[in-house]
Design a protein around this nucleic acid. Structure first.
Length: 987
DNA sequence: CCCGGGAGCGC
DNA sequence: AGGCGCTCCCGGG
């Protein structure tokens, strides 16, 4: 009954009690779970505090017995043999939007060893599919079903019988593990509701805990307890998502990337058609059944491929928590349990578990913040503490060897190096000015803390495992097992820091987290300074890495520099270690966290590494990624810039044509976006494409919940008017597009302008010889709409006037049209230096058609009329939207600058007839009568001819020039906003 | 035109 | 129910 504990001072502080008792005497009281729980906030004259009143039986058992993950417990004689089962049910919803079960496959593997690397397809298994008709089975279905190959097909009369038979199968197999995809969130939910609704027999056999009465079915995705006694490996669970690299975690995508298998997708809306009993052949339904059989296989194959069971078991062994939580939950709980075990072993009192609440320290700090800042409204989260340091990248394309040096496991190493722990770091006062102070690390005499020692143990064990792996005699199975073990050790060590800064963590210790990152920033800064002191150029760095420009073209030299630098850095620390992580042959550095490189692999091989670019994001379609890939390959090819630019331009031209020509498949246009909330919870649902699609999916009885990744394609609005329908309404699910046959058309212009151009533009930004207007032009988009203000002005006036020919400068100017009063013909007034076309003869202006002389006064009036026409046009102030899919033309002006006023459009409006256009037009008119220029631009024998002409017709030219100049000079400022015209010069 | 808040990445 | 740092893009005033 009585036991003396040492106090754990942080435990006290974590409770928000301000007192820092080191060791005190505690009275330990133990009583059964059949008695009521004490409140945790009681006190009396005899005691000030009670701890651990709400500890669960599981925690107690696991801690007291030091149970570290799955192991044999001598409670009774457990009858366990390993059986895995993979289940698929395909569900269709009909009438009243209720999801029913039409088909279920159980693929059962018996006596599997989860450490055996043999893939599931090479191991014996039984397959059984239960299927029931919607109305009636197609003729001959039962006969054909009985002759099915390996898989047993059991036609069932109705849904209830299907469920009953499935439950019998599960009961007989009694699986330890159930593997599925979206099982917890979807399948189990439907199963439970249908079993209850249809009063299925022995429904609790889905798990191992026998029940006769139904407990309440919880929210979707929260009913793991119905499976108690079995492990659930759900490939779409958060736990699994951490282990599988994928953008959508759809079964089809994972099969493709991890199994190299081409899984056929079935449109859920087509399910009913597979069950059509009115057709003459059973083939279609058999196809459906085989699809289910195959899916069940895929799920197990994926689970085996990513080693989900061995890895989660190792993680669970390290943390001492529950395996099912490792499989289906996040990592906070693992971290909690490893610390609980450690502190319990050392006889500390740990902070109490606060269910669904912020840790006591977090809550306390928030209150203090509120007091200090005079009752500032509870703005949700507290200010973040500072994290890793990111250097400003030196942007551009680097073509000397770049050394990527990074610290191995920086944060775990810092925690060890500086002995950062709950028991070693003194708490800090909260600063008066609200600024949070970083605590000091303990002095070197302070003994090693709990956390540093724990991490050291993990790191040492990992080192041992890795040395085992070097043994040449090791079998592949052993190697695989060790590899999983070392991975689990690394993951565990690395996750300790994250949980220190997690407000809801039982061991929340913000000052420790802040100290860790502070040291990280300090170390990275010093590392860069060291490099610079060695005359090495650091072009970039992020948190724990520096990219050093070796500035050499010989690999051996680069390696030598790397070794010298490594030694210089590592000499400064006891434990902390920097190492060469890779060598880049070429590096395209675009932004912080955004770059691509050609990495040197062993020998002469190379590979491309891409970080953070648009092409790595799920909201860009495959087409966009393919185009980016090509452009990137060209840029990194190392060939001459002109050749690269030319190839890019050519390629984009082809792409533009192919897209518009309908040569690209629908799949390549699919965009993905994750739902942050449930679709109906969006306040601005109407403007979000994926939310609109999700809502329509739900209306059809499909699932679309928070966290789901929604696929969609932008189509042309109904009725063909691209501008009329709001953007979000035009987003359609790929299945909708496929079903519509030709009704829905992909909005190619939108894809070119919004999915292809922007990523390419960003990639080409540092590349000479092209710009966004040119890239847009290649794609068949109007280049003028993509010219920046600066570029447009530069185009008109040119920073280097002499470099631009008049032909180029006045390309878009309207000609001066001269009408002849005699023959009523009309002709453009060509430049006077153009002796073949000019109507100005040495004798004066004359009509080229009827040779009649044209009066100066008449021409002057005509010129003035045309100039005034342009001015009037300018004052009409028509604006157009720069989004080619919108094309909105209006005379309305927005209140907020240049945003397009059409609902749902993201474009920018500009004057159709801008001040710059007008100014340029006037300059063009002036140029027509510029005698000096005419002489200058003429060469050879022409020069003399022109010179004679301007001498003879000087009066005429001066009169006309003066007319143009009048408008240009006197009123120029009224039209031309000099500030915008010359904005490109402000750099 | 500026400012903020999500997404989604990187580490 | 792990952290923070950084583009981007989109709404809103």
């Amino acid at each position: 009954m009585k036991d003396i504990y040492e106090d754990f001072d942080r435990a006290v502080c974590l409770r928000g009690e301000g007192r820092a008792k080191k060791e005190t005497q505690w009275l330990k009281v133990v009583y059964g779970f059949n008695e009521p729980q004490l409140p945790n906030n009681v006190s009396s004259p005899n005691f000030s505090r009670i701890f651990a009143t709400n500890t669960t039986a599981f925690e107690l058992l696991v801690l007291k017995r030091k149970i570290m993950g799955p192991c044999w417990l001598q409670i009774k004689n457990p009858q366990v043999d390993n059986k895995g089962v993979s289940c698929t049910r395909t569900i269709v919803n009909h009438r009243e939007n209720i999801r029913e079960i039409v088909c279920a496959t159980a693929r059962i593997w018996s006596n599997i060893d989860i450490d055996d690397p043999t893939p599931p397809e090479a191991l014996p298994c039984t397959v059984r599919t239960f299927v029931r008709p919607l109305d009636r089975f197609p003729p001959n279905f039962e006969v054909r079903a009985s002759g099915n190959g390996k898989g047993l097909i059991s036609p069932m009369k109705n849904e209830r019988m299907l469920l009953n038979s499935l439950l019998v199968t599960i009961h007989r197999a009694d699986p330890d593990v159930i593997v599925g995809h979206e099982f917890l969130g979807v399948s189990l939910d439907v199963l439970l509701h249908r079993m209850r609704e249809l009063k299925a027999d022995h429904w609790s056999r889905i798990g191992r805990f026998r029940r006769s009465r139904w407990p309440p079915i919880g929210r979707q995705g929260t009913n793991l307890r119905f499976l108690s006694g079995r492990l659930l490996g759900d490939l779409a669970s958060d736990g699994a998502k951490d282990m599988i690299t994928s953008t959508t975690w759809s079964l089809t995508e994972m099969c493709k990337t991890h199994l190299k298998s081409d899984r056929q997708d079935i449109d859920p809306d087509d399910t009913a058609s597979y069950f059509d009993g009115g057709v003459s052949s059973p083939e279609r339904l058999l196809t459906f059944v085989r699809h289910c059989e195959l899916d069940a296989h895929y799920q197990m194959a994926l689970a085996a491929k990513v080693q989900i069971l061995p890895l989660t078991r190792q993680l669970t062994n390290l943390a001492g928590n529950s395996w099912n939580k490792t499989l289906n939950g996040g990592r906070a709980e693992r971290n909690e349990y490893i610390l609980l075990h450690e502190f319990h072993r050392l006889k500390y009192v740990c902070p109490d578990k606060l269910w669904g609440k912020k840790s006591a320290v977090a809550a306390k700090a928030e209150n203090e913040d509120g007091d200090a800042e005079g009752g500032k409204t509870t703005k949700g989260k507290r200010d973040k503490y500072k994290g890793g340091l990111v250097f400003e990248p030196k942007r551009g394309l680097w073509d000397k060897y770049i050394l990527v040096m990074d610290f191995n496991s920086l944060y775990p190493s810092i925690i060890q190096e500086y002995n950062i722990d709950f028991t070693t770091v003194e708490s800090v006062e909260v600063d008066a000015d609200g600024e949070e102070k970083i605590p000091e690390p303990p002095s070197s005499e302070v003994p090693q803390g709990v956390l540093p020692r724990l991490i050291a143990t993990l790191v040492n064990r990992r080192r041992q495992v890795k040395s085992l792996m070097k043994d040449k005699k090791a079998t592949p199975a052993q190697l695989l097992q060790w590899d999983i073990k070392q991975m689990a050790l690394k993951l565990t060590a690395n996750s300790m820091y994250g949980c220190l800064g997690f407000e809801y963590s039982r061991f929340y210790a913000r000052p420790l987290a802040a100290l860790t990152t502070f040291k990280g920033r300090e170390i990275l800064t010093h590392t860069r300074e060291l490099a610079e002191s060695m005359q090495l150029d650091v072009v970039y760095g992020d948190t724990d890495s520096v990219f050093v420009n070796s500035n050499v073209t010989e690999l051996a030299e680069a390696l030598k520099i790397s070794a010298e630098f490594k030694k210089a850095v590592n000499d400064r620390y006891k434990l902390l270690e920097i190492d060469l992580d890779g060598i880049f042959q070429r590096l395209l550095l675009l932004q912080k966290k955004k770059y691509a490189a050609v990495k040197v692999e062993d020998g002469s091989r190379t590979s491309t590494e891409v970080k953070g670019l648009d092409m790595k994001r799920r909201e860009y379609c495959v087409l966009s990624k393919t185009v980016s890939q090509y452009v990137l390959e060209q840029i990194l090819s190392g060939e001459a810039t002109e050749a690269v630019v030319e190839r890019i331009h050519e390629y984009l031209t082809t792409i533009g044509e192919d897209v518009r020509g309908g040569k690209i498949k629908l799949d390549e246009f699919i965009i993905f976006k994750r739902l942050g909330k449930n679709p109906e919870d969006y306040p601005d649902a109407k403007s979000q494409p994926h939310v609109q699609v999700a809502l329509r999916m739900k209306a059809r009885g499909l699932t679309a919940r928070a966290g789901d990744v929604i696929p969609y394609v932008f189509c042309i609005g109904e009725g063909g008017e691209t501008a009329k329908t709001a953007q979000a309404d035009r987003a359609k699910h790929p299945d909708e597009v496929r079903r519509s046959s030709d009704e829905l058309k992909i909005d190619y212009e939108h894809y070119l302008a919004h999915q292809i151009l922007p990523p390419i533009e960003r990639l080409c930004e540092p590349i000479e010889g092209t710009d966004r207007a040119r890239l847009a032009e290649c794609l068949g988009l109007d280049p003028n709409r993509y010219r920046s203000a600066a570029e447009s002005e530069e185009r008109y006036f040119g920073t280097l006037d002499s470099l631009m020919s008049d032909a180029e400068r006045f390309k878009d100017a309207e000609p001066f049209l001269v009408r002849c009063r005699s023959c009523r013909g009309q002709v453009a007034f060509a430049p006077i230096s153009d002796r073949e076309s000019s109507l100005l003869l040495p004798s004066g202006p004359a009509c080229p058609a009827c040779q009649s002389a044209l009066g100066t006064a008449s021409l002057q009036v005509q010129l003035e009329t045309q100039i005034r026409g342009h001015i009037a046009k300018y004052y009409e102030s028509w604006t157009v939207c720069d989004d080619p899919t919108c094309g909105n033309r209006t005379r309305m002006m927005g209140v907020y600058g240049r945003r397009c006023l059409r609902q749902g459009c993201r474009g920018t409006v500009a004057f159709e007839y801008s001040d710059a256009t007008l100014y340029n037009q006037l300059r063009f008119y002036l140029s027509l009568f510029d005698a000096e220029k005419a002489v200058k631009t003429s060469t050879g024998s022409k020069a003399d001819e022109v010179k004679a002409l301007v001498d003879l017709q000087g009066d005429f030219l001066r009169t006309m020039a003066a007319t143009a100049e009048k408008y240009l000079n006197q009123s120029g400022r009224r039209w031309v906003q000099l500030s915008t015209l010359f904005s490109f010069m402000k750099m």
